[in-house]
């Protein structure tokens, strides 16, 4: 194989899609997984109930551009924060993090400040989410190389 750089930057966007908490309601993530795949992305879905630690390890091992995390159970302020701290601890801040789920408007500024963007609620058009992920993936890659 030729040296990685050009190959890497032209490879499809790779997204880790996960619900890193005790939350088994997976209707939404299955829809997202298919929609991301249909939009030409590579989607990694680690199954239910990964811990934030497991999720961050997978993100690093699989060299993803974006982590898309979703929670419906009200624990996003605790868990999303944990994910961001773990990324930092593992020197993987370059990976973009996009959030979604049942996230009250009042929590969004705090999440943005942590570095979790998007934070889409129910009813968001799929194209908005996909465009945002593409944008964050581009940023993530430009930071890496």
């Amino acid at each position: 194989m030729a040296s990685g750089r050009n190959q890497k930057s032209s490879r499809p966007i790779r997204v880790l899609l996960a619900k890193p908490a005790i939350d088994g309601h997976d209707r939404g993530v299955y829809v997202l997984a298919r929609a991301f795949r249909d939009a030409g992305m590579e989607v990694i879905y680690p199954g239910l109930l990964p811990t934030p630690e497991e999720m961050v390890r997978i993100a690093i091992d699989e060299d993803v551009d974006v982590i898309a995390i979703s929670l419906l159970n009200g624990s996003h302020m605790t868990i999303f924060k944990k994910v961001m701290e773990l990324l930092k601890k593992n020197h993987a801040e370059g990976i973009a993090v996009v959030g979604g789920g049942i996230i009250p408007a009042g929590d969004k500024p705090m999440l943005e400040k942590m570095g979790v963007s998007g934070n889409y609620g129910p009813g968001t058009p799929m194209s908005d989410i996909i465009d945002h992920i593409k944008k964050r993936a581009r940023e993530s890659r430009s930071k890496k190389w």
Binding site: A21, T78, I79
Partner: peptide, 22 residues
């Protein structure tokens, strides 16, 4: 709540932030 549904005690670190939420 989710910790109860998944059989996780409230003093387990995995239950952080989820106690009484759902």
């Amino acid at each position: 709540d989710e910790p109860t549904l998944y059989g996780i005690d409230c003093d387990n670190a995995r239950a952080d932030g989820e106690i009484g939420k759902c």
